[in-house]
Structures are given as structure tokens and as C-alpha cells.
Simulated scan of single mutants.
Amino acid sequence: MAEPVRLLIVCLGNICRSPVAEGVMRARIATSTLAGRIELDSAGTGDWHIGEPPDRRAIANAAEHGVDIAGLRARQLALSDYHDFDWLLCADRANLRDVRARAPGGARAGSALLLDWSGLAHEGEVPDPYTGGPAQFEHVFQLLDRAADGVIARLRREYPFLTR
């Protein structure tokens, strides 16, 4: 069996956008033909929330959609991630700049905006809902839900060995 494709979703603190993206993608992939062939994780560029669970509002919003992210814990992007993952998919341009600026020589992981990579370039960036309310968390969930469909489609298209 071929090596799994490894995706790391990156945002600022790893408590709102990236854990929701990880949770949604895990749920979608688990019920697809890609189950067991994709490895997912999430990280933040900042270190403020290391070891903490996702924001309670993100947990509640994801749960409303049947996605459980309560067991996830925040971590900071590590140099090893550039070698351990195939793609570092970033929530916004600031995260993408930080990810690229920190890349060590010989890094194998590609880096891109999550929405661009998933085929939703017209949506731009995933906004940070941290200072917002329920409507902002719902908007982010809906964006990431659509992005998960695009990620699965791209994986099937670009990694055909995953579907054999």
C-alpha cells in the first residue's frame, strides 16, 4: 500500500480555524474511499495556546454539525512538520507568510492557502472568528465544510493511487 498523504492545517493559535478544519476533514475522509490513506493534523504559528483544547465556541459549533473536536489539543508548528507532511495548508496569508519564512532548507512540504488548495480561491482566506460570535464561527464552519469537499476532490485527482 502506498504511503499516506499527510496534510497539516495551520492557523494562528490552533484553537479555532485549524482544529475545525482538521475535524471536518477527518469526518469527511473517514466516510470516503480515502479512509486510512490520509493523515491530518493541525498546528498554530503562535505558541500561546499549546496544550489547550479548541476554543469552546469552535467545539460547540462543530458539535452542532456532528463533528467532535473536543479531544484535540493545540500545538505550535515545528521544524519537523516541514519534513513530516506533504502540504502545510494555511488559513490566511499572514499564516502562509510565517510558514514560508520559517521553512528550513530542504523542506519537502509544499505550502499554500487552504481555500486556494481546495479550489475555493474565490473565497480568499478563512477569517479568524476568535473575536466574533456564533455567526462568525458558523461562517468559518461552512467555509471549511466546503473546503473539505474540495480537498477530497483534489486528493482523488492528484493522488490517484489513493483510490486503488
Results as ranks from 00 to 15, higher is better:
residue 4 P to E: 10
residue 9 I to C: 03
residue 10 V to R: 01
residue 10 V to E: 01
residue 13 G to Q: 06
residue 13 G to V: 04
residue 13 G to T: 01
residue 15 I to E: 05
residue 16 C to G: 05
residue 18 S to P: 10
residue 21 A to G: 12
residue 22 E to P: 00
residue 22 E to I: 08
residue 23 G to C: 05
residue 24 V to T: 13
residue 28 R to M: 12
residue 28 R to I: 03
residue 29 I to K: 03
residue 29 I to E: 00
residue 31 T to Q: 14
residue 33 T to L: 12
residue 34 L to Y: 06
residue 35 A to Y: 04
residue 40 L to H: 06
residue 40 L to S: 11
residue 45 T to W: 07
residue 46 G to H: 06
residue 47 D to P: 02
residue 48 W to H: 08
residue 49 H to T: 09
residue 51 G to C: 03
residue 51 G to Q: 14
residue 51 G to W: 13
residue 54 P to V: 09
residue 57 R to L: 13
residue 58 A to F: 15
residue 60 A to N: 10
residue 63 A to L: 14
residue 63 A to G: 04
residue 64 E to F: 05
residue 64 E to H: 11
residue 69 I to A: 08
residue 71 G to M: 10
residue 72 L to V: 00
residue 74 A to P: 06
residue 74 A to R: 07
residue 76 Q to L: 02
residue 76 Q to K: 10
residue 79 L to N: 01
residue 82 Y to M: 07
residue 83 H to T: 11
residue 83 H to F: 15
residue 86 D to P: 11
residue 88 L to E: 02
residue 89 L to E: 09
residue 90 C to I: 02
residue 91 A to R: 02
residue 93 R to D: 00
residue 93 R to K: 10
residue 94 A to C: 01
residue 97 R to T: 15
residue 99 V to L: 07
residue 100 R to T: 13
residue 101 A to P: 04
residue 101 A to V: 09
residue 102 R to Q: 11
